[in-house]
Write a protein that binds this DNA or RNA. Structure first.
Length: 392
DNA sequence: TCGGATT
């Protein structure tokens, strides 16, 4: 059997996953969907199959182990509330699944926002990438790509970087880190309101944990070329590792929306139906299967994809703590984060704090209602946070 | 009187 040279596969198959950027290879059926604000950028270098096996069927390597490099997919950026069943429904609509797993936090049981799907047929894995990569579910744009072979050495290789100069691009950051090893993914978080200004924090995932360790040793506390401040480089937390309170708030909001469903709901449901039917024919269509997805499909289609709306609260008392902010702002809607700014040595509140709310309308209502509100003997000033403290 | 940040 003749096999095409690898480079032909790579160059004529946008979906091969061998060189995959987060928004390439998106199926035509989604190109007319409303685009939400993309608050982050990401690229991914090659992690696809190595190309030494036959195009179809299970591949047995020399040591007798099954090579699942053409059937096993990793799915990233799943909505927090997606269940194992919904995950299986979505990917099972493509073809027969050998196994799949939504990865959860060992202790809390919370989804870590990613999972693995291993298909029986490599063609289905390819189809899944073509069809489902880039699919928008709630506030997330899921990423579907070939999984790297499981190995202890690739675990815990993800770094969190802060203090980056605002002018540093993702490419700059990759260049800085690439001296320590092969970068699998990188991302710089950007401000959602100004649509694209760096927040000065980001992520770098290396291929190997020891590469990540070396990068910490080499770059933590260092000033990048021409930068005024040193950067902080440390191992990243798990995705969506939130405060207990924020998590409860989010779960509450999610549960409420399942039953009150916004107007987007029906539109989005049709979109998902069309996607699956158009690609695979009605015979794969199961109303029950699709119904199990609708709770995920309708929420917040065009809403902010980033951190939310940040509110500045001034004139808090020195004794103020986080709970007062939760109590003040919680009634207006989804609060994802509160922070009281304290003096480092006295640990007393410096008179101000921040509240992040998910929805613009709720944030605006909270500001309108709470600005000028009398808390004890103080009158609060409440406004959207400004991006710069412009001194006169 | 506008931090630190966790995809």
């Amino acid at each position: 059997i003749l096999e095409k040279p690898l480079w032909i596969k790579l160059s004529n198959t946008s979906s091969s996953g061998a060189t995959q950027t987060s928004h390439s290879g998106r199926p035509h059926t989604r190109t007319q969907q409303p685009k939400s604000i993309i608050s982050t950028m990401e690229t991914q270098v090659s992690n696809g199959p190595s190309g030494t096996s036959l195009p179809n069927g299970p591949v047995i390597s020399s040591n007798g182990a099954t090579d699942d490099s053409k059937t096993n997919l990793i799915v990233n950026y799943l909505p927090q509330n997606m269940t194992q069943e919904e995950f299986k429904s979505l990917f099972g609509s493509i073809g027969e699944i050998e196994s799949c797993k939504l990865v959860r936090d060992k202790i809390t049981g919370q989804s870590l926002g990613y999972g693995f799907v291993n298909y029986v047929d490599p063609n289905d894995a390819d189809k899944a990438i073509n069809t489902l990569n880039g699919l928008k579910l709630q506030t997330k744009t899921i990423k579907v790509s070939y999984a790297r072979p499981s190995s202890a050495s690739i675990r815990d290789a993800n770094l969190y970087v802060s203090g980056l100069p605002k002018t540093m691009s993702q490419k700059d950051m990759e260049q800085l880190f690439s001296q320590y090893g092969r970068i699998i993914t990188s991302r710089i978080l950007v401000d959602q309101v100004t649509a694209g200004i760096s927040r000065g924090v980001g992520f770098i995932r290396f291929d190997k944990r020891n590469e990540a360790e070396e990068a910490i040793k080499g770059l933590n506390g260092q000033k990048p070329l021409g930068a005024a401040e040193p950067i902080t480089v440390k191992f990243a937390n798990n995705p969506s590792q939130k405060t207990g309170q924020a998590l409860l708030t989010q779960l509450y909001q999610t549960a409420a929306r399942r039953y009150t469903g916004p107007l987007h709901h029906q539109t989005q449901r049709f979109r998902l139906d069309n996607l699956l039917n158009a690609s695979y024919g009605v015979k794969r269509f199961s109303p029950i299967t699709i119904d199990s997805m609708t709770s995920l499909a309708g929420v917040n289609l065009t809403g902010p994809t980033g951190a939310g709306w940040c509110i500045f609260v001034y004139n808090l008392s020195p004794e103020a703590d986080e709970s007062v902010l939760w109590q003040l702002f919680g009634p207006f809607g989804a609060v994802t984060n509160v922070k009281v700014i304290r003096d480092f040595t006295t640990n007393k509140c410096k008179g101000f704090g921040f509240v992040t709310m998910t929805n613009y309308d709720e944030a605006a209502m909270a500001i309108a209602s709470l600005n000028g509100y009398r808390l004890g003997d103080r009158v609060l000033q409440v406004s959207f946070k400004t991006s710069k403290q412009h001194k006169a």
